[in-house]
Design a protein around this nucleic acid. Structure first.
Length: 150
DNA sequence: GCCAACGTTGGC
DNA sequence: GCCAACGTTGGC
């Protein structure tokens, strides 16, 4: 069982969108490091924090769980999709995704500022300077510490 | 393989 | 809108 944090801009897809839908495929990851973690490390049942980025109060907005094994991100092969990649093909899909299920939405977002202020999250990858990865692993200790901040 | 130019992310 | 910090691209 692994713990993750995944970012999305809420104007693009938010925790309430997921709450309404119940389940979605996490498409559009176009970074090799993030892809490799998703493709090689994610397992059904892993827990994931939903992080709202590029918004007024950036932070963790809720919890979801991985609900499928990794499979090719078909949006990479769709020329009309924003994340179309001409180098992706059926034989060589290049990009991967997983399905995620809604678990819970926090009453209020646990802000980036609050995360920074929590000494037990010092090592959290998302707080490292310059880190822009859209998918990062968390330790169980970090996961529990965040949950306590609700 | 190097590296300059360019594009993207994301907080502020 | 600004800009730091990356990642990617492509000429050489």
């Amino acid at each position: 069982m692994n713990y993750w944090l995944m970012k999305s801009e809420p104007t693009c897809y938010s925790i309430s969108d997921l709450q309404q839908e119940g389940e979605t495929h996490w498409d559009g990851v176009r970074n090799y490091q993030a892809r490799n973690m998703m493709r090689d490390k994610m397992k059904v049942g892993d827990l994931v924090f939903f992080y709202h980025s590029n918004t007024k109060i950036p932070g963790i907005s809720g919890v979801m769980s991985v609900s499928s094994a990794p499979y090719p991100d078909f949006t990479a092969q769709d020329p009309t999709d924003d994340h179309y990649d001409p180098k992706a093909s059926e034989e060589n899909p290049r990009w991967f995704m997983v399905d995620v299920k809604f678990v819970e939405a926090f009453d209020s977002v646990i802000s980036l500022q609050a995360l920074k202020n929590n000494p037990s999250l010092k090592e959290m990858l998302i707080l490292r300077k310059g880190n822009r990865l859209s998918i990062t692993p968390l330790t169980k200790q970090e996961w529990d510490a965040v949950l306590l901040m609700q």
